[in-house]
Design a protein around this nucleic acid. Structure first.
Lengths: 144, 144
DNA sequence: TCACATAGTCCTACGGTCGTACTAATATTA
DNA sequence: TAATATTAGTACGACCGTAGGACTATGTGA
Protein backbone atom coordinates (compact mmCIF):
# COMPACT_ATOMS: atom_id res chain seq x y z
CA UNK A 1 0.00 0.00 0.00
CA UNK A 2 1.30 3.39 -0.98
CA UNK A 3 1.41 6.26 1.42
CA UNK A 4 -0.81 9.19 0.60
CA UNK A 5 1.32 11.71 -1.22
CA UNK A 6 0.66 15.44 -0.94
CA UNK A 7 -1.14 16.95 -3.88
CA UNK A 8 1.79 19.23 -4.59
CA UNK A 9 4.15 16.26 -4.73
CA UNK A 10 1.89 14.49 -7.20
CA UNK A 11 2.05 17.60 -9.37
CA UNK A 12 5.80 17.67 -9.07
CA UNK A 13 6.12 14.04 -10.16
CA UNK A 14 4.01 14.52 -13.26
CA UNK A 15 5.65 17.80 -14.24
CA UNK A 16 9.13 16.34 -13.82
CA UNK A 17 8.14 13.46 -16.04
CA UNK A 18 6.99 15.83 -18.76
CA UNK A 19 10.10 17.97 -18.60
CA UNK A 20 12.38 14.95 -18.72
CA UNK A 21 10.60 13.71 -21.80
CA UNK A 22 10.68 17.04 -23.59
CA UNK A 23 14.34 17.62 -22.80
CA UNK A 24 15.03 14.05 -23.90
CA UNK A 25 13.55 14.41 -27.36
CA UNK A 26 15.24 17.76 -27.83
CA UNK A 27 18.62 16.18 -27.14
CA UNK A 28 17.83 13.30 -29.44
CA UNK A 29 16.89 15.84 -32.09
CA UNK A 30 20.35 17.35 -31.85
CA UNK A 31 20.18 19.82 -28.99
CA UNK A 32 23.30 18.58 -27.28
CA UNK A 33 25.36 20.41 -24.74
CA UNK A 34 22.40 22.34 -23.42
CA UNK A 35 21.83 21.73 -19.73
CA UNK A 36 18.46 21.42 -18.05
CA UNK A 37 18.84 24.83 -16.47
CA UNK A 38 19.56 26.35 -19.84
CA UNK A 39 16.56 24.61 -21.40
CA UNK A 40 14.27 25.84 -18.66
CA UNK A 41 15.45 29.36 -19.31
CA UNK A 42 15.00 29.08 -23.07
CA UNK A 43 11.45 27.85 -22.58
CA UNK A 44 10.60 31.28 -21.20
CA UNK A 45 11.83 33.22 -24.21
CA UNK A 46 9.13 34.77 -26.38
CA UNK A 47 9.53 34.63 -30.14
CA UNK A 48 10.13 38.35 -30.40
CA UNK A 49 12.75 38.23 -27.63
CA UNK A 50 12.63 38.72 -23.90
CA UNK A 51 14.60 40.84 -21.49
CA UNK A 52 17.06 39.07 -19.28
CA UNK A 53 15.51 40.38 -16.10
CA UNK A 54 12.13 39.06 -17.22
CA UNK A 55 13.64 35.68 -17.92
CA UNK A 56 15.19 35.67 -14.47
CA UNK A 57 11.88 36.55 -12.88
CA UNK A 58 9.96 33.90 -14.79
CA UNK A 59 12.49 31.22 -13.94
CA UNK A 60 12.79 32.42 -10.35
CA UNK A 61 16.53 32.89 -10.47
CA UNK A 62 18.84 35.85 -9.88
CA UNK A 63 19.81 38.13 -12.72
CA UNK A 64 23.43 37.03 -12.42
CA UNK A 65 22.39 33.44 -12.88
CA UNK A 66 20.40 34.30 -15.97
CA UNK A 67 23.37 36.24 -17.31
CA UNK A 68 25.62 33.21 -16.87
CA UNK A 69 23.15 30.88 -18.56
CA UNK A 70 22.55 33.24 -21.46
CA UNK A 71 26.31 33.67 -21.86
CA UNK A 72 26.67 29.95 -22.46
CA UNK A 73 23.65 29.72 -24.71
CA UNK A 74 24.93 32.64 -26.74
CA UNK A 75 28.44 31.17 -26.99
CA UNK A 76 26.90 27.96 -28.32
CA UNK A 77 24.86 29.93 -30.84
CA UNK A 78 21.39 29.13 -29.54
CA UNK A 79 20.37 32.66 -28.59
CA UNK A 80 21.53 36.18 -29.35
CA UNK A 81 21.30 39.48 -27.53
CA UNK A 82 19.90 42.43 -29.47
CA UNK A 83 19.30 45.99 -28.27
CA UNK A 84 15.85 46.74 -26.92
CA UNK A 85 14.51 49.60 -29.06
CA UNK A 86 12.35 50.83 -26.21
CA UNK A 87 15.09 51.07 -23.57
CA UNK A 88 18.77 51.75 -24.12
CA UNK A 89 19.76 49.87 -20.99
CA UNK A 90 17.97 46.69 -21.91
CA UNK A 91 18.71 43.98 -24.42
CA UNK A 92 16.41 41.32 -25.77
CA UNK A 93 17.40 37.69 -25.63
CA UNK A 94 16.18 36.02 -28.80
CA UNK A 95 16.48 32.50 -30.19
CA UNK A 96 18.68 32.23 -33.29
CA UNK A 97 17.78 30.53 -36.54
CA UNK A 98 19.92 27.61 -35.35
CA UNK A 99 17.49 27.11 -32.47
CA UNK A 100 14.31 27.58 -34.48
CA UNK A 101 13.93 23.96 -35.70
CA UNK A 102 13.70 22.70 -32.12
CA UNK A 103 10.67 24.70 -31.14
CA UNK A 104 8.21 22.52 -33.09
CA UNK A 105 9.91 19.41 -31.71
CA UNK A 106 9.31 20.57 -28.16
CA UNK A 107 5.72 21.50 -28.90
CA UNK A 108 5.01 18.20 -30.58
CA UNK A 109 6.28 16.27 -27.58
CA UNK A 110 4.31 18.50 -25.28
CA UNK A 111 1.15 17.76 -27.22
CA UNK A 112 1.98 14.06 -27.29
CA UNK A 113 2.26 14.00 -23.52
CA UNK A 114 -1.03 15.78 -23.09
CA UNK A 115 -2.65 13.37 -25.52
CA UNK A 116 -1.36 10.41 -23.53
CA UNK A 117 -2.62 11.91 -20.33
CA UNK A 118 -6.00 12.52 -21.89
CA UNK A 119 -6.09 8.94 -23.12
CA UNK A 120 -5.33 7.76 -19.60
CA UNK A 121 -7.81 9.99 -17.82
CA UNK A 122 -10.49 10.47 -20.42
CA UNK A 123 -11.36 13.77 -22.03
CA UNK A 124 -13.64 14.95 -19.27
CA UNK A 125 -11.27 14.36 -16.36
CA UNK A 126 -8.39 15.85 -18.33
CA UNK A 127 -10.41 18.99 -18.97
CA UNK A 128 -11.32 19.22 -15.30
CA UNK A 129 -7.69 18.73 -14.34
CA UNK A 130 -6.58 21.57 -16.58
CA UNK A 131 -9.35 23.79 -15.34
CA UNK A 132 -8.48 23.15 -11.71
CA UNK A 133 -4.78 23.80 -12.35
CA UNK A 134 -5.53 27.04 -14.14
CA UNK A 135 -7.67 28.09 -11.24
CA UNK A 136 -4.95 27.24 -8.74
CA UNK A 137 -2.53 29.31 -10.74
CA UNK A 138 -4.44 32.37 -9.62
CA UNK A 139 -3.23 31.82 -6.08
CA UNK A 140 0.14 30.17 -6.71
CA UNK A 141 1.79 31.92 -9.63
CA UNK A 142 4.07 34.72 -8.44
CA UNK A 143 3.73 36.59 -11.78
CA UNK A 144 0.04 36.69 -12.12
CA UNK B 1 -4.96 37.60 -22.32
CA UNK B 2 -2.64 34.94 -21.01
CA UNK B 3 -1.15 32.38 -23.28
CA UNK B 4 -2.28 28.81 -22.77
CA UNK B 5 0.27 27.13 -20.54
CA UNK B 6 0.99 23.41 -20.84
CA UNK B 7 -0.64 21.28 -18.18
CA UNK B 8 2.73 20.15 -16.91
CA UNK B 9 3.86 23.74 -16.46
CA UNK B 10 0.74 24.54 -14.49
CA UNK B 11 1.59 21.62 -12.22
CA UNK B 12 5.13 22.86 -11.86
CA UNK B 13 3.98 26.34 -10.85
CA UNK B 14 1.68 25.06 -8.14
CA UNK B 15 4.15 22.53 -6.78
CA UNK B 16 6.92 25.09 -6.67
CA UNK B 17 4.64 27.40 -4.74
CA UNK B 18 3.93 24.68 -2.19
CA UNK B 19 7.58 23.76 -1.75
CA UNK B 20 8.60 27.37 -1.34
CA UNK B 21 6.00 27.84 1.37
CA UNK B 22 6.92 24.68 3.24
CA UNK B 23 10.63 25.42 3.10
CA UNK B 24 9.86 28.96 4.19
CA UNK B 25 8.02 28.02 7.35
CA UNK B 26 10.67 25.44 8.21
CA UNK B 27 13.35 28.10 8.05
CA UNK B 28 11.25 30.48 10.09
CA UNK B 29 10.81 27.68 12.63
CA UNK B 30 14.56 27.45 13.03
CA UNK B 31 15.72 25.16 10.26
CA UNK B 32 18.48 27.45 9.07
CA UNK B 33 21.45 26.51 7.00
CA UNK B 34 19.58 23.74 5.23
CA UNK B 35 19.49 24.22 1.49
CA UNK B 36 16.55 23.41 -0.76
CA UNK B 37 18.35 20.39 -2.15
CA UNK B 38 18.95 19.10 1.35
CA UNK B 39 15.32 19.65 2.32
CA UNK B 40 14.09 17.81 -0.74
CA UNK B 41 16.26 14.89 0.22
CA UNK B 42 15.11 14.89 3.84
CA UNK B 43 11.48 14.85 2.71
CA UNK B 44 12.11 11.37 1.31
CA UNK B 45 13.39 9.88 4.56
CA UNK B 46 11.04 7.46 6.29
CA UNK B 47 10.74 7.61 10.08
CA UNK B 48 12.52 4.29 10.53
CA UNK B 49 15.36 5.38 8.27
CA UNK B 50 16.04 5.01 4.57
CA UNK B 51 19.01 3.75 2.59
CA UNK B 52 21.05 6.32 0.78
CA UNK B 53 20.59 4.64 -2.59
CA UNK B 54 16.82 4.70 -2.10
CA UNK B 55 16.97 8.38 -1.25
CA UNK B 56 18.97 9.01 -4.39
CA UNK B 57 16.49 7.11 -6.51
CA UNK B 58 13.48 8.89 -5.04
CA UNK B 59 15.03 12.29 -5.50
CA UNK B 60 16.34 11.39 -8.97
CA UNK B 61 19.94 12.22 -8.19
CA UNK B 62 23.18 10.25 -8.31
CA UNK B 63 24.33 8.35 -5.25
CA UNK B 64 27.38 10.58 -4.96
CA UNK B 65 25.15 13.62 -4.82
CA UNK B 66 23.08 12.04 -2.08
CA UNK B 67 26.25 11.18 -0.19
CA UNK B 68 27.39 14.78 -0.35
CA UNK B 69 24.03 16.10 0.83
CA UNK B 70 23.78 13.60 3.67
CA UNK B 71 27.34 14.46 4.69
CA UNK B 72 26.32 18.05 5.23
CA UNK B 73 23.06 17.18 6.93
CA UNK B 74 24.90 14.81 9.26
CA UNK B 75 27.60 17.37 10.02
CA UNK B 76 24.86 19.83 10.98
CA UNK B 77 23.21 17.23 13.20
CA UNK B 78 19.94 16.83 11.30
CA UNK B 79 20.37 13.19 10.30
CA UNK B 80 22.52 10.26 11.35
CA UNK B 81 23.74 7.12 9.64
CA UNK B 82 23.12 3.83 11.40
CA UNK B 83 23.97 0.31 10.23
CA UNK B 84 21.27 -1.54 8.34
CA UNK B 85 20.63 -4.73 10.33
CA UNK B 86 19.51 -6.54 7.21
CA UNK B 87 22.57 -5.77 5.07
CA UNK B 88 26.09 -5.16 6.24
CA UNK B 89 26.91 -3.01 3.26
CA UNK B 90 24.06 -0.62 3.75
CA UNK B 91 23.39 2.12 6.27
CA UNK B 92 20.14 3.79 7.13
CA UNK B 93 19.83 7.55 7.04
CA UNK B 94 17.61 8.60 9.92
CA UNK B 95 16.45 11.97 11.22
CA UNK B 96 17.86 12.89 14.62
CA UNK B 97 15.88 14.09 17.61
CA UNK B 98 17.08 17.58 16.73
CA UNK B 99 15.14 17.30 13.46
CA UNK B 100 12.02 15.72 14.91
CA UNK B 101 10.22 18.94 15.92
CA UNK B 102 10.19 20.16 12.33
CA UNK B 103 8.25 17.26 10.89
CA UNK B 104 4.89 18.41 12.33
CA UNK B 105 5.64 21.95 11.17
CA UNK B 106 6.08 20.76 7.61
CA UNK B 107 2.97 18.63 7.74
CA UNK B 108 0.88 21.44 9.18
CA UNK B 109 1.91 23.78 6.38
CA UNK B 110 1.26 21.07 3.86
CA UNK B 111 -2.25 20.62 5.21
CA UNK B 112 -2.77 24.38 5.31
CA UNK B 113 -1.88 24.66 1.64
CA UNK B 114 -4.23 21.85 0.71
CA UNK B 115 -6.98 23.49 2.75
CA UNK B 116 -6.46 26.77 0.92
CA UNK B 117 -6.56 25.02 -2.41
CA UNK B 118 -9.73 23.25 -1.43
CA UNK B 119 -11.26 26.54 -0.35
CA UNK B 120 -10.36 28.01 -3.72
CA UNK B 121 -11.60 25.12 -5.83
CA UNK B 122 -14.34 23.66 -3.72
CA UNK B 123 -14.28 20.21 -2.18
CA UNK B 124 -15.51 18.40 -5.25
CA UNK B 125 -13.01 19.84 -7.72
CA UNK B 126 -10.19 19.38 -5.25
CA UNK B 127 -11.08 15.71 -4.87
CA UNK B 128 -11.22 15.31 -8.63
CA UNK B 129 -7.86 17.04 -8.95
CA UNK B 130 -6.24 14.68 -6.46
CA UNK B 131 -7.83 11.70 -8.11
CA UNK B 132 -6.61 12.71 -11.55
CA UNK B 133 -3.10 13.35 -10.27
CA UNK B 134 -2.98 10.00 -8.53
CA UNK B 135 -4.09 8.36 -11.73
CA UNK B 136 -1.44 10.18 -13.75
CA UNK B 137 1.16 9.02 -11.29
CA UNK B 138 0.66 5.52 -12.63
CA UNK B 139 2.18 6.56 -15.93
CA UNK B 140 4.60 9.26 -14.79
CA UNK B 141 6.23 8.07 -11.56
CA UNK B 142 9.51 6.27 -12.27
CA UNK B 143 9.27 4.29 -9.00
CA UNK B 144 5.85 2.91 -9.31
C1' DT C 1 20.37 69.78 -13.19
C1' DC C 2 20.69 66.27 -9.90
C1' DA C 3 19.21 62.50 -7.27
C1' DC C 4 17.34 58.17 -7.83
C1' DA C 5 15.81 53.87 -10.08
C1' DT C 6 16.58 50.28 -13.35
C1' DA C 7 19.03 46.78 -16.81
C1' DG C 8 22.69 44.29 -17.12
C1' DT C 9 27.42 42.74 -16.12
C1' DC C 10 31.82 41.38 -13.52
C1' DC C 11 33.97 39.19 -9.74
C1' DT C 12 33.97 35.94 -6.33
C1' DA C 13 32.59 32.19 -3.43
C1' DC C 14 30.11 28.20 -2.63
C1' DG C 15 26.82 24.39 -3.18
C1' DG C 16 25.02 20.77 -6.27
C1' DT C 17 25.94 17.34 -9.68
C1' DC C 18 27.92 13.41 -11.57
C1' DG C 19 31.72 10.41 -14.16
C1' DT C 20 35.24 7.45 -12.85
C1' DA C 21 37.25 4.56 -9.78
C1' DC C 22 37.47 2.31 -5.51
C1' DT C 23 36.39 -0.69 -0.95
C1' DA C 24 33.55 -3.64 1.59
C1' DA C 25 29.88 -6.78 1.94
C1' DT C 26 26.60 -9.82 -0.14
C1' DA C 27 24.80 -13.00 -3.64
C1' DT C 28 25.57 -16.46 -7.14
C1' DT C 29 27.24 -20.40 -9.11
C1' DA C 30 30.54 -23.83 -10.42
C1' DT D 1 33.87 -24.19 -0.57
C1' DA D 2 35.97 -21.02 -3.72
C1' DA D 3 35.74 -18.01 -7.53
C1' DT D 4 32.93 -14.56 -9.63
C1' DA D 5 29.56 -11.09 -10.09
C1' DT D 6 26.65 -7.78 -7.93
C1' DT D 7 25.44 -4.21 -4.80
C1' DA D 8 25.90 -0.22 -1.09
C1' DG D 9 28.37 3.33 -0.26
C1' DT D 10 32.40 6.46 -0.56
C1' DA D 11 36.56 9.43 -2.42
C1' DC D 12 38.26 12.39 -5.83
C1' DG D 13 37.98 15.71 -9.27
C1' DA D 14 35.80 18.60 -12.70
C1' DC D 15 32.17 21.44 -13.97
C1' DC D 16 27.72 23.89 -13.65
C1' DG D 17 24.31 26.65 -11.25
C1' DT D 18 23.53 30.06 -7.94
C1' DA D 19 23.65 34.42 -5.83
C1' DG D 20 25.78 38.54 -2.84
C1' DG D 21 28.11 42.75 -3.60
C1' DA D 22 29.82 46.17 -6.40
C1' DC D 23 29.87 48.52 -10.74
C1' DT D 24 28.55 50.95 -15.46
C1' DA D 25 25.24 52.80 -18.43
C1' DT D 26 20.81 54.42 -19.25
C1' DG D 27 16.39 56.21 -18.08
C1' DT D 28 13.07 58.94 -14.86
C1' DG D 29 11.24 62.62 -12.23
C1' DA D 30 11.41 66.70 -9.08
Amino acid sequence: MERQLPTALLMFIASRYAMDRIFGVLRQAGLEGVSDAQMKLVMNIDVEGTRLSVLAERAQIAKQTATALVDKLEAAGWVERVPDPTDGRARLVRPTSKAAPFEPVAHAEERAIEAEWEAHLGAQRMAELRSALESLREITDPYL
